[in-house]
Structure formats: C-alpha cells, structure tokens
Design a protein around this nucleic acid. Structure first.
Lengths: 132, 132
DNA sequence: TTCGTCTTACGAAATTATTCGTAGACAATT
DNA sequence: AATTGTCTACGAATAATTTCGTAAGACGAA
C-alpha cells in the first residue's frame, strides 16, 4: 500500500490535476483540449503524462471503455496543504506568517477576500485562547 | 544584461540560498558544513552546485583569494515573492486568500504572529479605501 | 624536498521530467 | 473490404538536476 503523502507533483502534473479537480473525471482528450488553450502540446505528450501520473498513483482511471477516464486520486485541499507546508519550511524557514504577508503583498486581494481572511484569523484566535 | 526575475531556484539551490541569506558571504566549505548537518552530501557536490548557481547568476563570488567567497545575488524577499506568486497562480488558481488560509491552517502560528498579520491586513484595508 | 591537505575545475554518470514518433487495436465510414 | 480516425502502449530523444570521481595547483609541516 502506497500513500502519496510525500509526493510533489511537478508543474506539468499540477496543470493536469487542476483541470481534473475543476472538471471532474475526464478522458485524455478532454484534458488535452483544455491544456492546448494555454500552451503548445502534442496529444501523446498529454497521454504519456497522464499515464505516468497513473503509475505514480496521482490519478486513477476507469479502463472499461476504449477511452479511459481519469480522475484525480489526491484531493486538491490536501495537495495544496502539502505544497504550502513545504514552502513554509523551505522558503520561509518555518514562518507561516511570513508567507501570509508575502502572499497578501503579492496579489491585490479585493475587499471580500480580506474580510474572509479576517474572519478566519479571528476564528483561530478564539480557538487558541480557549485551548490555553 | 540578464535579470533573473523569472528564475526558479531548485530545492537544492534554495537550501544554499537560505544559508547564504542567513550567514552572509561564505566559502563553499562553510556552506557545506551547514548543509551536512541536515543531509548527506559530498563536498564536491556542494562546490559544483554553487559553481552552477554562479553561472546562473544566482550567486556572485569574490575569487581574489584561493577560497572563493560566495554571496547570494538575488534578494530573499524578491525570491520569496516570486515563489509565492507562482504558487498562487499554479496551485491556487490566482486566489491569494486561499493560499493564506491554507498557510494559517497548516502551521500553528503563535499569538504575536497573528497580531502581526492582523496589523498588516488593516494596513492594506486602509490603503485600499483611500485609493478608491 | 616530499607528503598530506585544501582548494578549484572539469567531465561524466545517474536520475527525473518532458516531449514526441510510431505501432497496433478497434470502430465507423466509404 | 479498404480507408480513415481515434485510442493506448511503448520506446526513445532531450533536457535539467544532482551526484561524485579525478586532476591540478597552492600551501604548510615534517
């Protein structure tokens, strides 16, 4: 039994995962058509990538029909969490707040987003003060 | 003239950059000794890596003495910013607030850190309301 | 001087990621 | 039946990253 808890999807793999997370189960062709919009790529390249991802257990597939149907086998949330964690460790020396501030400075968030973050912060504070 | 604005340091390169950012100018040996604490590595491996980073303009060096002295040639802040930006785009589909919340959930921040983030948020709000 | 140690430079192996060409299977169309 | 198109599988070229062995020069100690 293999978990992929430690796995780090490459950039290309991430592009494919993003498509599958958004659209749900897809054939190679469907994924490929989305990819083509944003970059040059041959069909067999996409196919091969998805086969490799299947070997790595990043995707699962239904092969009953001729056109196999692929699904992401790792959750978006969990993957995002792992990547963020890795970045906190490797790039921000363990300081999540440093990352947070870089992120806020990097990308202009609109007011709704800022409010959401504030709510979230307050929730954390509440939790941590009761957990004393 | 070449900028390295688009460059993405690899994980190994980041380890070296972190050391140089923290300690300032170092010889290969000094860097290597820090690296050895956290992982297995031969001296020439570290040397080669730093030479390559010098070729890529990630490091600059003073070669007047026999033991060359290397310095990071990209700033920590700027590098962190680029990596965060890339992550927002590739992993969080452009939503900085999603990343922020993942980061806060990922790593338990202490109260001081939370306060700092709150201050920062308020500053952003202030700025955006005057810039209407 | 001669030996051991430290340094850089260089080349190359090993590994991983990315790309694509080609072949074979299968089904629909002519 | 022959052609065309779509699919998978496979192998291989290319490129980037990481690793390390070895050579050559400098330097100091025995």
């Amino acid at each position: 039994m293999q978990t992929n808890d430690h796995l780090k999807p490459t950039d290309s793999e991430l592009e494919i995962l993003n498509i599958l997370w958004e659209k749900g189960p897809c054939t190679v062709r469907e994924v490929h058509e989305v990819l083509e919009k944003s970059k040059e790529a041959g069909y067999t390249t996409t196919l091969k990538l998805m086969q490799i991802m299947h070997d790595k257990n990043l995707l699962k597939r239904d092969a009953t029909n001729k056109s196999h149907i692929y699904t992401a086998n790792i959750s978006q949330e969990k993957t995002q969490g792992q990547l963020v964690k890795r970045m906190i460790e490797n790039v921000f020396n363990g300081s999540a707040s440093q990352l947070v501030m870089q992120a806020l400075g990097q990308h202009k968030s609109n007011n709704d987003e800022l409010q959401e973050i504030k709510r979230y912060l307050e929730e954390i504070e509440k939790r941590s003060s009761t957990n004393k």
